[in-house]
Amino acid sequence: MKFQMSFGVINLLNDHIAEVIIDEGTHMSLEMCEEYDELLLNIFDRPFGLLINKLNNYSYTFEAKLHIASLSHLKAMAVIHYNSEAEQKTNDLLALRETDKWNLKTFCGLQMGREKAIAWLDKAVAKHHQDSNQLANSLDSDLDS
């Protein structure tokens, strides 16, 4: 399923991963991030991962950099880059948001990165589902005692 947004497209890859492709030259604002969040909240009601496919060159306002990737159900992000500039922008954003301790891994799109990124996201999100199920079972057994 594909969702056209004001800033690009979000592809729903499965029930726990969405791919984000931002349009060339976009300057992501806080309002665009809120549009993005609203859609993700409507799609996912449990842990999910994002595949950020940096096919295009784009930037963020400072406010957007501080807001992006703040949803509680977002458990893993994979970023596919195609050049050193895109990789450096990701590293700069990671440094700015270091205290958030994002579960983020980067992949080179020129080396089968998309397939590797999706496989990594599947495992990362599955771990959160497994941990949630174990916690729920533990709470159920505590209540039965």
Rank of each mutant, 00 (worst) to 15 (best):
M1G: 15
M1R: 14
M1C: 05
K2Y: 03
K2E: 11
K2M: 09
F3D: 14
Q4Y: 09
Q4I: 01
S6K: 02
V9C: 04
N11E: 08
N11T: 07
L12Y: 00
L13D: 05
D15P: 09
D15I: 01
I17N: 02
V20Q: 05
D23Y: 07
D23K: 15
E24A: 03
T26F: 03
H27A: 15
L30P: 01
E31H: 10
M32D: 12
C33D: 13
E34L: 14
Y36W: 06
Y36F: 13
E38H: 06
E38Q: 15
L39Q: 10
L41I: 13
L41T: 10
D45I: 02
R46E: 15
F48T: 11
G49S: 08
L50R: 11
L51D: 03
K54W: 03
N57S: 13
Y58T: 09
Y58I: 11
S59F: 00
Y60K: 01
F62M: 07
E63T: 04
E63I: 08
A64Y: 04
A64N: 10
L66E: 12
H67T: 15
S70M: 06
L71Q: 15
S72N: 07
H73W: 12
L74K: 08
A76Q: 01
H81K: 04
Y82M: 14
Y82E: 09
N83C: 09
N83S: 04
E85H: 06
A86E: 15
A86R: 12
E87C: 10
Q88G: 00
K89R: 14
T90Q: 11
D92S: 03
L93S: 08
L94Y: 04
L94F: 06
L94H: 04
A95N: 05
A95W: 02
A95Y: 11
L96N: 08
E98H: 06
T99F: 13
D100E: 12
W102H: 14
L104K: 06
L104T: 14
T106S: 11
F107E: 05
C108D: 14
C108I: 00
C108Q: 07
L110K: 15
L110D: 14
Q111H: 14
G113R: 00
R114A: 10
K116W: 00
I118C: 03
I118V: 15
D122N: 15
K123V: 10
A124S: 13
A124D: 02
V125C: 00
A126T: 14
S132Q: 07
S132E: 05
Q134P: 05
N137E: 10
S138I: 00
L139A: 03
L143Y: 08
L143W: 01
D144F: 05
S145M: 11
S145Y: 06
